[in-house]
């Protein structure tokens, strides 16, 4: 029923797979670099200036950002699914990502006018903070709409997500009329999701909030397990629910906000990664949370490799590649649900 009966072994296996894939993807792209050359370059002695620039300045930050963003979306997806007691609670589907993206877009477009004071005040971190607040607002709203008396109504949750996505889409559309040409290009980037222009600056913005979420969320793993049996049951068992809910809502918004701020809207990772990890390691959050982070990173790095190579030398936005796989996966998940008990 599970692929790995020993969860630590499964986690180790996924980590090794991620390391190998990330290293290999240094050599993949429009400009051919052998993996030996890529390895040598990484440790300081590049065979040529061009190879150094391609591997260290372009591909390395991009891959590292892919790992970070994937881990953030994977762990946030797993945590939100625990909070909603349902495996369809993906940050993209329920509108958390589009809330974060809307806030980020507003910051870009209105940064020189309406929100000038805010930009001057927060500078470098204006974008991730705005994205975090946007994501947080949507998470709170969806939770309020979909959860009543300790029960989550999945239908309401998904419908509220549709509403949030529509509202965010409309507002983003309106903002495009205020945008300059240059801003318009970056808006397209937000709506499709991309890690192509990744820089070490992006990495430094996203690193702290995502690391915080990755480190702290697993501390609530046992509480999330009990929470799946219902609010009152887990309270009767002695778990502190207020603390749990606050932590999950804030930390997953933080992770999603940071990911959106540097990569735009990348959907489905938060849906697909936890589901695959449940098949490999089971639903226990002690393994599911770290496993989903690693799996999310794997999926983003792998999709990014595809995005770079399918139409080489042109590149696809990674969000499109993932949606092309994620959409059918979502349908398959619904079919599974129809035919079987439990996720």
């Amino acid at each position: 029923m599970r692929v790995f009966n020993e969860p630590y072994f499964g986690l180790a296996f996924l980590s090794v797979l991620l390391a190998l894939l990330a290293a290999y993807s240094l050599s993949v792209g429009a400009i051919a670099v052998s993996w030996q050359d890529a390895g040598v370059t990484l440790f300081g002695s590049a065979p040529s200036e061009l190879v150094h620039r391609v591997v260290v300045d372009i591909r390395l930050p991009r891959i590292l950002l892919g790992v970070l963003v994937g881990a953030a979306l994977g762990v946030a997806g797993a945590a939100l699914q625990g909070l909603f007691r349902n495996p369809l609670a993906d940050p993209g589907l329920v509108g958390v990502s589009s809330g974060a993206a809307l806030a980020a877009v507003a910051t870009i477009v209105l940064g020189s006018s309406l929100l000038k004071d805010w930009i001057d005040f927060s500078g470098y971190f204006a974008l991730p903070i705005a994205a975090f607040l946007g994501g947080l607002a949507v998470t709170l709203l969806i939770y309020r709409v979909a959860t009543h008396n300790g029960r989550t109504d999945v239908g309401l949750m998904l419908l509220a997500g549709i509403a949030m996505n529509a509202i965010a889409g409309a507002l983003t559309g309106i903002l495009t009329y205020y945008a300059s040409d240059e801003e318009l290009r970056s808006l397209t980037f937000w709506s499709m999701g991309s890690i192509a222009g990744a820089s070490f600056d992006d990495l430094s913005i996203a690193l702290a909030p995502i690391t915080l979420a990755l480190v702290v969320l697993p501390k609530f793993a046992r509480a999330l397990n009990a929470f799946l049996m219902g609010e009152s049951v887990s309270r009767h068992m002695g778990y502190n629910l207020k603390q749990l809910k606050t932590a999950v809502i804030v930390l997953s918004s933080l992770a999603v906000g940071a990911a959106v701020a540097v990569s735009g809207m990348i959907g489905f990772i938060g849906l697909v990664a936890p589901h695959l990890v449940r098949l490999l390691l089971g639903p226990d959050h002690r393994w599911l949370l770290p496993g989903s982070a690693i799996m999310g990173a794997l999926l983003v790095v792998a999709s990014d490799m595809l995005a770079r190579t399918i139409l080489s030398p042109a590149e696809l936005p990674i969000g499109l590649v993932i949606a092309a796989f994620g959409g059918p996966f979502f349908l398959w998940l619904l079919l599974q649900r129809r035919n079987r008990v439990g996720w």
Binding site: R222, L228, V233, D284
Partner: peptide, 18 residues
């Protein structure tokens, strides 16, 4: 009635005890 939709093993259900 306890509704649990995720495929926890029986042992894991008992491990949830604090």
């Amino acid at each position: 009635k306890i509704q649990l939709d995720f495929p926890f093993l029986v042992e894991e259900v008992l491990q949830m005890v604090l």
